[in-house]
Design a protein around this nucleic acid. Structure first.
Length: 573
RNA sequence: UGGGGGCUCGUCUAAUGGUAGGACAGCAGACUCUGGAUCUGUAUGUGGAGGUUCGACUCCUCCGCCCCCAGCCA
């Protein structure tokens, strides 16, 4: 069991298996029910994958059904974006449907309930209904004043004759009444301890143009009077949803029971909370609208589009999803886990390249002026089939400023006067001197000598160096802009802070304009991913052109040196 | 003083009356032409109190803490 890496199971899979065994269902069909009112983010992935994986596990099918019951909030643009993002993730569905496909049938079902005396048209205002619904007791965050649960008060319209209800409902549908003037409510129990059962609204009047049905309807169903019915109509066996719908289940079941229709089983799981990630659509929108980020696909966002642009592969997200599991506890997954999954994925598949982000000129004094050697470099030590490439080497190189210190701190093994290091795939070099700008005092170049016997990086006498650094030949280098990203928020739970201004990390984006890449990178196309050796994983941004290369840092490499440095408490400029 | 749900290492998650295990994060070390990767070792957990039992994370009782619910949102 623990040696044979078994595939993840969870309580939902177990429940479904049980349903098959007991004969409650003899097939499995799930549905994926996004509301087309925004872009998908990492929080949606968990729910999507539970629906998809559960169906797949039992050879069943998945229906992608857009929950488009509120025409004032939903747009076709989002339908397309959601399909595209879900496909990118690797989710397959049997067909795409819309809640609005079922508006006619749903209306017939409502008429049936009215005829059974189980639904009525209420003329009360929203305010009146709210007051008459009763209250929760003191001690909940919802009620500071009432001392006990108060039952609701029945509407004066509750016992309208069936014929009158039918007539009014018909006229509501035909658009004869203004918005807010009437609703259709289920007649259940105004004293029910579960407030959702206190005569919930089924239809409200909305004179709005729907993205698919246009102006055909003047009434639109509420979530509770739509979702479960659609599940039933589509023969969905398992309606898997997040925890906040648990309290809806009695109502969900009540409707199907009264209707006498196919009974889907609703099962709830806890939604994903990810540290340092913003999941609230409202707040995400704010970030975009205020220009805090560049758009819905800003690489700092955990939207699927943002992650994709950042350079994250869907496989990493799938792996992450497997590792967080499915349970019913309130959980906060650490961003570090997502990052670990991203690194694991990228490590095994990314070609390695050398890139100097903060350049410092390195001159090899004893190297022939006009000479160029093409050094053989391994493309991916994790994948032999990736082969090798040639990288040009010459007298003047760029190295990273971090790789030189005038006076080395303890345990610093890179370049400093007198020290020998390896230039990766090239030569062993010894630092001889460095030059400062006489005016500013800034370090301008470092000088060294190379040992011609160490071509390729191996010393024939077997001597060791403690460090290998990367480099780029100055005359061959491709210039690029590189964007470094850090967490967008300064707090672990950004959704819990109302004023986003307080929690934005001002340093979440650092643009480096003076980066030098090995020449092969000049041909990188949007989305191409690489490991810049010793630095991190990077991918070509959509902004990148052959004239101006732009790379995003997806995630840095694990950096044990920075840990050592932090412990020493001596960070250098 | 309502209803519903939940509490296992720092975090996520297994163990379904029989050795509390894994992953991420941490720490220590080995190895290394990436201070990467890899490998090894290591610490930390069953919310509390009772009870049932040869044996309890698991079953029972009480207590505590956390989350959700009064949209004509989904």
């Amino acid at each position: 069991m623990d040696t044979n890496e078994s595939k993840p199971t969870n309580f939902i899979l177990e429940a479904v298996a049980e349903d098959l065994k007991t004969g409650r269902f003899d097939y499995v069909r799930t549905r994926l029910p996004p509301e087309p009112n925004g872009y998908l983010h990492i929080g949606h992935v968990k729910a999507f994958l539970i629906d998809y994986n559960t169906a797949k596990e039992f050879g069943g099918e998945l229906i992608l059904r857009f929950d488009d019951t509120n025409p004032t909030k939903e747009e076709t643009e989002f339908v397309e974006a959601i399909e595209e993002d879900a496909q990118w993730l690797g989710i397959h569905w049997a067909k795409v449907t819309f809640a609005s496909d079922y508006f006619d049938r749903l209306y017939e079902w409502a008429v049936r309930l009215v005829k059974k005396g189980l639904a009525y048209v209420d003329d009360q205002s929203a305010k009146e209904m709210s007051v008459s619904r009763g209250t929760l007791p003191r001690g909940t965050k919802w009620s500071q004043t009432e001392s006990a649960l108060k039952p609701g008060i029945e509407s004066p319209y509750r016992n309208r004759p069936v014929e009158e209800n039918l007539d009014l409902l018909e006229r509501m549908k035909n658009g004869e009444f203004p918005e807010g003037s009437r609703v259709l409510r289920a007649k259940i129990d105004m004293a029910h301890p579960n407030i959702l059962m206190r005569d919930p609204v089924m239809y409200r009047i909305m004179h709005a143009t729907h993205h698919r049905t246009g102006d055909k309807w003047s009434i639109y169903p509420m979530y509770d009077w739509s979702h479960g019915q659609n599940d039933s109509m589509e023969g969905i066996t398992h309606s898997l949803c997040s925890f906040e719908y648990e309290i809806h289940r009695p109502l969900y079941e009540w409707f199907l029971e009264q209707l006498g229709e196919f009974k889907t089983r609703q099962i709830e799981f806890s939604r994903l909370n990810l540290t340092y990630a913003m999941m609230s659509k409202r707040k995400l929108r704010k970030l975009v609208e205020r220009g805090v980020v560049r758009g819905w696909d800003d690489p700092r966002l955990t939207t699927l589009r943002g992650l994709r642009r950042r350079g994250v592969n869907p496989e990493a997200i799938l792996d992450f999803n497997d590792r967080i599991g499915v349970a019913k506890t309130n959980s906060w997954v650490e961003m570090a886990l997502l990052e670990a999954c991203i690194r694991t994925d990228l490590n095994k598949r990314s070609p390695r390249r050398m890139a100097v982000l903060r350049p410092l000129k390195l001159v090899i004094d004893n190297y022939p002026e006009a000479q160029v050697e093409w050094m053989e470099a391994v493309n991916n030590p994790e994948d032999e089939s990736a082969g090798t490439r040639k990288v040009p080497f010459s007298k003047v190189l760029y190295i990273d400023r971090d790789d030189f210190r005038e006076t080395p701190p303890p345990k610093y093994f890179r370049l400093y006067p007198g020290n020998e290091v390896r230039l990766r795939y090239a030569y062993l070099v010894t630092c001889t001197s460095f030059v400062r700008d006489p005016g500013t005092g800034a370090l301008t170049e470092v000088h060294c000598t190379y040992d011609p016997a160490t071509h390729g990086g191996d010393a024939p006498d077997g001597r060791k160096v403690k460090s290998t650094i990367h480099w780029v030949s100055a005359q061959h280098a491709a210039k690029a802009e590189v964007r470094l990203y850090d967490r967008l928020f300064t707090v672990e739970r950004p959704d819990e802070v109302e004023d986003i201004n307080e929690i934005i990390n001002p340093n979440s984006l650092e643009v480096l304009n003076d980066c030098y890449l090995e020449p092969s990178l000049a041909e990188a196309k949007t989305g191409d991913k690489f490991q810049f050796e010793r630095t991190g994983y990077f991918c070509a941004d959509p902004d990148s052109t052959p004239e101006k290369l732009v790379f995003n840092r997806t995630v840095s490499l694990r950096d044990t040196w920075s840990k050592i440095e932090q412990k020493q408490g001596n960070r250098s400029p």
